[in-house]
């Protein structure tokens, strides 16, 4: 088991390196850098000004070198200008030249400097992640139990009327992307044209003080799609288990239907959805980005959009590292959890 996890961690590390390098490469393509220079400097810069602006900040070095500087394996680019001013990667406003470190990469715990927010990336990402974590907590609380109950109810009697009603509902949910359900929710519950302004169409205030009025709609919007999806998976798994030979054995042993579902079917039926729930995370991240943009909730998804929209390289890299790690860790958990839930493949 330990060896397995170690190997998986190795693969994860490799994946993270590859992905961050791809992000790094794409963000460092010249047109992107040019745009960065113009937004940071001014929009009427000439070609030469752009390249000197970029050169001063080390952007014109070969991409692998820049990447290693970001990682912290090479000393950060720095140059003393003609007027004696020190410029470079590791230079921060209000930090004296003597105190500027030579290395300033991820390995040193330094995630870089955001050009949009004019502040350390680590700090920004931390706060925003916290806000998103709060949102996700509520989403999970709504989505997972709801989906499992719906799925089990539908799957325990395949083909029954309950099943058909619930299945069609789940299909309808999975067919509704967040940007549609969000729009519909706002139109219905937060506009004068619908049922009146019962809820708020913006969740900005929920960042300090979340309540039903400003938080229900975003949570529901994210939860809905996943709810349909997980419910369908649970239903499929449950209905498959219910036709299994051992369920018939239990039935012919005289076990009541209730106990068949609770004691015999449930555990076997939940193995597959568990994996699905875990693998839902990448998609949930999508939902988070859409919902945070739609409801103006300034969490991690909103941050990602800001970073990407403005080609804020360091911030974008940090965001992708976080996103990738979330995805990979959930994959790992799903694998390990699968083993624990399923005695058939447990290592003896």
């Amino acid at each position: 088991m330990g060896q397995f996890i170690l190997r998986r961690l190795g693969v994860m590390l490799l994946t993270t390196i590859c992905l961050t390098y791809i992000v790094f490469f794409l963000t460092n393509l010249y047109p992107n850098l040019e745009k960065l220079a113009k937004t940071q400097g001014n929009f009427r810069m000439s070609e030469a000004e752009v390249s000197s602006w970029l050169g001063d900040r080390g952007y014109l070095q070969p991409t692998p070198v820049k990447y290693l500087e970001w990682v912290g394996a090479l000393p950060g680019y720095s140059i003393v200008k003609d007027d004696g001013q020190l410029v470079g990667r590791c230079v921060r406003p209000a930090v004296a030249a003597e105190d500027t470190p030579r290395y300033c990469g991820v390995l040193q715990g330094n995630w870089g400097f955001s050009t949009v927010f004019k502040s350390e990336v680590g700090g920004i990402v931390g706060t925003r992640l916290g806000l998103t974590g709060f949102l996700m907590f509520w989403v999970m609380l709504v989505m997972v139990p709801g989906a499992l109950i719906v799925g089990v109810l539908a799957g325990m009697r395949e083909g029954s009327r309950t099943d058909r009603t619930l299945s069609t509902t789940s299909i309808a949910f999975t067919a509704t992307p967040e940007y549609v359900s969000g729009v519909v929710f706002i139109a219905l519950f937060a506009s004068s044209a619908g049922f009146g302004r019962i809820f708020k169409g913006s969740a900005t205030s929920a960042m300090e003080d979340a309540n039903l009025e400003n938080f229900l709609l975003p949570v529901l919007t994210i939860a809905l799609y996943g709810l349909g999806y997980i419910a369908r998976m649970t239903r499929a798994s449950m209905s498959e288990v219910m036709t299994a030979q051992y369920i018939r054995t239990a039935r012919l042993k005289g076990v009541s239907f209730r106990n068949i579902v609770m004691k015999h079917a449930l555990r076997n039926a939940l193995i597959a959805p568990f994996t699905v729930i875990m693998l839902q995370f990448p998609w949930l991240l999508n939902g988070v980005v859409i919902v945070e943009t739609l409801f103006n909730y300034k969490g991690f998804g909103w941050l990602l959009v800001q970073a990407a929209g403005n080609n804020d390289i360091d911030l974008l890299l940090a965001c992708s590292v976080v996103a990738v790690i979330v995805v990979l860790v959930t994959q790992l958990i799903s694998d390990i959890g699968y083993v624990f839930l399923n005695p058939r493949i447990r290592v003896s």
Partner: peptide, 10 residues
């Protein structure tokens, strides 16, 4: 099928 008639998770 003896394998199929026993609950694998019990």
């Amino acid at each position: 099928e003896p394998m199929a008639s026993l609950n694998p998770a019990m």
